[in-house]
């Protein structure tokens, strides 16, 4: 492989990785607080892409109105899901919450099938994202750096919220101990709602960027990215936001690079993520940055 091809693959890997990372953050935030694998999260990604699509195609909105609007609407849907399907089950065994998440995921996918139609739709990129950029011999379309930069900005905003604001502090407290946080006078319901809102907003952004990168959208498009992003979250140490980003980038780059270096293995592409996951879990059962929790007896 030439150096230019390597650069091209690396750019591709990083942009895929930043999408995984964006989606993984939603998983990790919800898991850190509720210990719930929110399997409906991948379908939020799909919703984000579809709302943006309809905003542009049906309501003729320019992209800079449609995309932020889609993110806000999807965040709202995330909050509704939390209120309707997860909050009533919070005090029940975790399998109930998990099944509820699976049911929500089924519902969103099938509703998508009925409302949006099962046939894939072509998502049109704004024109400025289709310019070919030359880096030496390598050429990438301009959406690749745009995805990376947008994701980086969103990460910066998120890290600021989590580490520097009062809400962020409450979120961190919640992930340590829900009950005690409630006793300290923090409205836990509201903070959990806020986490869902934040996670869904990032997922929607991820969905729109995903549709820009792979411009065919269908009601099941969120399933695979959702699952891979969840793996990324586990790789990084679930519950840890920096870990989720790291896991996302790692997974994206490794996936692209293995196919680039060993083209014979491209049929096994979907299995790489799981193989990496299982190997890592065997040697570091709590992920790269996860804390080792002492067993309480």
């Amino acid at each position: 492989m030439t150096f230019d091809q390597f650069i091209q693959n690396l750019a591709n890997g990083i942009s895929l990785g930043s999408l995984y990372a964006l989606i993984a953050i939603g998983y990790t935030m919800v898991y850190g607080i509720l210990r719930l694998i929110n399997f409906a999260h991948g379908d939020i990604v799909m919703l984000g892409a579809y709302v943006a699509f309809y905003g542009v195609v049906m309501f003729m909105l320019p992209w800079w109105v449609a995309f932020p609007l889609a993110i806000i609407l999807t965040a709202g849907i995330g909050v509704i899901i939390e209120r309707a399907a997860y909050r009533p089950l919070r005090s029940f065994p975790r399998i109930n919450l998990f099944t509820s998440a699976v049911a929500v995921s089924f519902l969103l996918e099938n509703l998508g099938n009925v409302i949006f139609g099962g046939r894939p739709k072509a998502f049109e990129r704004p024109a400025f994202m289709d310019i070919a950029l030359q880096i030496g011999e390598a050429s990438v379309l301009s959406y690749t750096p745009i995805i990376i930069v947008t994701a980086a900005i969103l990460f910066a905003i998120l890290i600021y919220i989590v580490n520097r604001t009062k809400v962020g502090m409450a979120m961190r407290a919640l992930s340590k101990d829900i009950e005690t946080t409630g006793l300290m006078g923090i409205n836990t319901d509201r903070i959990i709602m806020f986490s869902f809102m934040l996670g869904s907003a990032l997922a929607a952004a991820g969905g729109i960027l995903w549709a820009i990168k792979f411009p065919q959208i269908n009601p099941l498009m969120g399933v695979m990215p959702g699952l891979k992003a969840f793996i990324a979250a586990v790789l990084g140490g679930i519950g840890n936001i920096t870990g989720a980003m790291l896991g996302g980038f790692l997974l994206g780059v490794v996936e692209i690079m293995i196919v680039a270096f060993f083209p014979d293995l491209s049929g096994y592409r979907d299995a790489f993520a799981y193989v990496i996951l299982i190997l890592l879990l065997l040697f570091r059962p709590t992920g790269i940055m996860g804390e080792v929790q002492a067993e309480k007896v």
Binding site: A85, P88, L89, N96, T99, S100, A103, V104, F106, L107, N110, L111, N113, V114
Partner: peptide, 13 residues
């Protein structure tokens, strides 16, 4: 399948 997922949710909730 939409109806089925709604019913599943109702049962779980």
């Amino acid at each position: 399948m939409v109806l089925f997922s709604i019913l599943l949710l109702i049962v779980i909730l």
